[in-house]
Design a binder for these strands. Structure first.
Lengths: 164, 164
DNA sequence: CTGTATCCTTAAAGATACTG
DNA sequence: CAGTATCTTTAAGGATACAG
């Protein structure tokens, strides 16, 4: 992105994730890989992406350890690593949001287990069960720096002051 | 993004979601909103984003129904709508991935319920319990067009032919 | 404080041609 | 088929100044 800020500096795991997979094509490539695409040309056909862009993205994904290249040098296979497959819950959650709000509840693609049983809507849970989105809170974690701590403190204080 | 493809055309809910919230700043703004940020200036301070960019994003988010503007015209509040809060599972899943792979398991921010109980790692489940990422499959859904169907069929056939 | 209006820079995206 | 090498376009991001 033009003249941009380095999101990975932001002391925020979401920002760091987006700095790695947050651009327009990367998650779609990962999605295709999940579905079973492995060849350069198949990614290209599936996405309608320019070859140079695709080549760059695949290199980045391999460098990031999200995908791995194997097979013949002339006609390699690109496959997800464990780290790449770990993106699945996030990807499916994004898909489900799109199913609901951007595809009018008519999913172009449905997600199932090996027996065809549908994957349930992704929810947030604690050790007792689902947690509603209104009940979710954020707090400083072990990786928080002073700025992040101050920021969260300030917010908490502001809420105390009855901001509504 | 420069000279770009319209992802929303892709007959894919993930692409459509990314077309709405898939740029570098939008999800971070949503995250801040989740945490409790509501003021223009607070978003700006938190993210270090330029004012014009922030203004554009907030407009887009409001237009998309993800955030809503309220309060005095001179000093409005920006808050998530139901549609916006529905992004939480996806956001948390992305954060968790970053916690693990981009923050060395030292989360800058932790997510809890109202009692401080931690939110568990987001997983994929069917009606019986967790589904491992290797056991996830994709199939054409009610919103699939001919191209998507053909694509998924072709992949399935290719796998039959013993690709791996 | 919350924007809007300009201007500028830059690099991402795409098209095309070429190579092994 | 799987790239690499260029070239061009273009619009996103950012800085600044200004306004209500």
């Amino acid at each position: 992105m033009p003249g941009k800020t380095d999101l990975s500096e932001l002391n925020c795991s979401l920002a760091r994730t987006l700095a790695i997979v947050g651009d327009w094509w990367t998650l779609l490539i990962v999605r295709d890989a999940c579905i079973g695409v492995r060849r350069f040309g198949d990614f290209q056909d599936s996405l309608g992406i320019a070859k140079n862009i695709l080549a760059t993205r695949l290199q980045q994904l391999c460098a990031a350890g999200i995908m791995a290249r194997s097979g013949p040098e002339r006609r390699p296979l690109y496959q997800l690593t464990e780290k790449g497959r770990a993106l699945l819950p996030a990807m499916v959650a994004l898909m489900q949001w799109g199913d609901r709000f951007a595809s009018a509840n008519k999913p172009p693609v449905i997600v199932t287990d090996t027996s065809g049983r549908p994957i349930a809507p992704v929810t947030l849970r604690n050790n007792r069960g689902d947690v509603a989105s209104e009940d979710v809170r954020f707090a400083a974690g072990p990786g928080a720096n002073a700025r992040t701590r101050a920021f969260l403190d300030a917010l908490r204080t502001a809420e105390m002051k009855r901001d509504v």
